[in-house]
Design a protein around this nucleic acid. Structure first.
Ligand SMILES: [Mn+2]
Ligand SMILES: [Mn+2]
Ligand SMILES: [Mn+2]
Ligand SMILES: [Mn+2]
Lengths: 218, 218
DNA sequence: TAAATTTGTTAGATGACTCTAAGTTATTAC
DNA sequence: GTAATAACTTAGAGTCATCTAACAAATTTA
């Protein structure tokens, strides 16, 4: 088994290298709030454990084993978030901090039970895919709202870069997953959008907001 | 906040000193599976933090602050066990190990929510009292089944020294909390009892078993 | 009460994770 | 293409929780 600390490095590596497949020690250091020399020695350690490919002055890459282990931790994180929202009545803005702790519990039974009680969910409360029991994650390709055009009708499918503040902002506007949006206007000069949403009136969303909302075109 | 480790020392001190109000470093060492010198230095540390009264060669005593903090950890442990049984469908023999980990989570909201969903329970699945939000615990005085007499009718109220094995043993005999027992015979020479229980026939329970069952006389 | 045993303490070391300071290599800017 | 900057590595140290070995005090046994 890996330590709490090692698990956090693995998770950060997984999340940061999601697109390019590699990360710089620098990014990792910033993400974790841990100084470079510390990260450096942990990378050597994870390399010893065959979880990370480490070569001096080269970007970091998770091994297949590393990806699998990281996927399993993310699985626990996301199952937990789903459980907290669906079964314990928390808001989607409240669950991340709690899941950060619960993801490190060692109890296959506990997570099995959560999974079963939730009916084997495929996504978490923020629309992120839940890795399967082997640590594999199915990427669902959504579009950013910011890349949609006037007249498009879309369904809100996921949010990215979720912070409490951002999620509370969405709560206020009743923007939750599954909501249907019609794009009324797109401002040329700042990329802000006016969208109408269900029975409610219309809202104007800044480019920054639209960039963090993933949608499915209808 | 206290570390995971410190919390485990506090909890062990609380449980071991429940009756006499004090513990020897030796008992504590055995309970935790940690060698004496380690315990010794931790006691000095907890003494610095005003959680333990420490004097060389004297028994250890929790301070009022120490009792309160320990009570709060035990509260989290027992609320968790109750949640796992009542809301997640675990058996009473499965929950202790999981609760040992969850009791260390730092999230007032999480435990508040558990408490509310459970309807503010006063006892855990093994019949142990759940300390209140100030860490205070109401001791309920039950009798040991082993101290009851032929002809007594009692209700099973709690189990002590609960191990998985013992709880599974009780499961097989359908001995769960609340069950009504009538004491048919008590063997003089070994203290074993024959009890009849609800519709089911009667069971013979060894003295060791009877000594671990707490009952309420009816 | 003196000896033997148990319990508690001190000293010194280790591994895990973190840091700062000081170098080294790679990248970017001019 | 050199100089400046950024990224990375090495060296050395600190904290926390643990250990073993050796010694001291208290308790038990005879
Ligand atoms: Mn999260
Ligand atoms: Mn999430
Ligand atoms: Mn327990
Ligand atoms: Mn416990």
């Amino acid at each position: 088994m890996h330590s709490y600390t090692e698990e956090n490095y693995l998770k950060a590596l997984f999340n940061l290298s999601a697109d390019k497949g590699e990360v710089s020690a620098n990014e990792l250091s910033k993400q974790l709030g841990i100084k470079m020399p510390t990260v450096n020695s942990m990378m050597k350690k994870l390399s010893e454990k065959k979880l990370v490919h480490y070569e001096s002055y080269k970007p970091l890459r998770l091994t297949e084993k590393g990806k699998r282990e990281a996927g399993l931790i993310i699985r626990k994180h996301r199952l937990t978030e789903m459980f907290l929202v669906q079964k314990m009545g928390f808001g989607w803005e409240e669950v991340h901090e709690i899941a950060e702790q619960i993801e490190h519990l060692h109890s296959p039974n506990f997570f099995e039970r959560m999974d079963a009680l939730l009916g084997y969910p495929k996504i978490d409360p923020h629309g992120s895919p839940i890795p399967d029991k082997t640590g594999k994650m199915e990427w669902i390709k959504y579009e950013k709202l910011s890349s949609c055009k006037e007249g498009d009708t879309v369904r809100l499918a996921a949010v990215i870069h979720t912070t409490d503040d951002f999620l509370k902002f969405l709560n206020l506007r009743e923007l939750s997953l599954g909501v249907k949006l019609k794009i009324k206007t797109v401002e040329k000069f700042d990329g802000s959008m006016t969208v109408s949403h269900n029975k409610k009136g219309s809202d104007t969303l800044s480019h920054i907001v639209c960039d963090r909302l993933l949608v499915e075109k209808l």
